[in-house]
C-alpha cells in the first residue's frame, strides 16, 4: 500500500489539497510545509509549548498533535485566518493582535501566534474572564521572553475594548 496519498483540508474557510504528503504527518507540518501557512510555530512537537495552537472545529488544540489526515472534513482556523489575511493579502489585525502590539506583549514573537489563538478562544467563550481564568487559559502557551505581564495586559485591554462596544473581530 502506498505511503503517500492526497487529501483535502478545509483551512481558514478554503479547501486546500495536500498532495505527496506522508499520511503520518502532523497538521502543524502540513500547514507549515505543504500549505504555506507558517503562522503556527513549530517548537516542541509534543504539546508542551502551545506555539502551534489552532482551532479545529472551534476547539483550541495543538496542531502538532493532530494527525492531519484525520482532520479531513474539519473546519481548521489558523492565526492567518484570525488576522483576516490569508495567503499574503493585506493584513487586517484582530483586536487581540492589536492589543498585543499596543501593550508590548510581543518580544521575540515566537509564542505570539499561539497566544493570539488561545486568547481569542478564551474571550470568544468567556467575554469577562477572571484573572485565574485568563492564567489558566494561557497556561498551555509558553513564553520565555515577556514574563507574561504584558500578555495579561493585552488580554485586559481587549476585554475593556470589547466591553465599551467594540465588536470582536
Amino acid at each position: 500500500m502506498s505511503e503517500y496519498c492526497a487529501y483535502t483540508l478545509r483551512v481558514n474557510g478554503r479547501d486546500r489539497e495536500v498532495s505527496d504528503g506522508w499520511l503520518g504527518e502532523s497538521l502543524l507540518w502540513v500547514l507549515r510545509e505543504r500549505l504555506d501557512l507558517p503562522g503556527a510555530k513549530n517548537a516542541c512537537e509534543q504539546g508542551e509549548c502551545g506555539s502551534c495552537s489552532v482551532l479545529v472545529d472551534g476547539s483550541l488544540v495543538c496542531a502538532c498533535l493532530v494527525l492531519a489526515a484525520s482532520a479531513v472534513g474539519r473546519d481548521i482556523v489558523t492565526v492567518e485566518g484570525i488576522a483576516g489575511a490569508i495567503d499574503g493579502s493585506d493584513a487586517v489585525l484582530s483586536d487581540v493582535q492589536e492589543a498585543f502590539l499596543t501593550e508590548g506583549a510581543v518580544q521575540c514573537g515566537f509564542c505570539t501566534p499561539g497566544l493570539i489563538m488561545a486568547v481569542h478562544d478564551l474571550l470568544d467563550r468567556v467575554p469577562l474572564p477572571t484573572d485565574l481564568e485568563v492564567r489558566e487559559a494561557i497556561s498551555g502557551n509558553l513564553c520565555r521572553c515577556t514574563g507574561y505581564g504584558r500578555i495579561m495586559e493585552a488580554v485586559w485591554t481587549t476585554v475593556r475594548l470589547r466591553q465599551v462596544g467594540g465588536q470582536a473581530r
Binding site: 499520511l23 503520518g24 502532523s26 512537537e45 509534543q46 504539546g47 502538532c64 498533535l65 493532530v66 494527525l67 484525520s70
Partner: peptide
C-alpha cells in the same frame, strides 16, 4: 485525541502502518 500517539510519531519513535 492524538496527545500520546502523535508525540511518538513526531519524534520518530513510532511509524504506524495503519491508524
Amino acid at each position: 485525541g492524538g496527545t500520546d500517539l502523535m508525540v511518538e510519531v513526531n519524534y520518530g519513535h513510532r511509524r504506524p502502518t495503519a491508524v
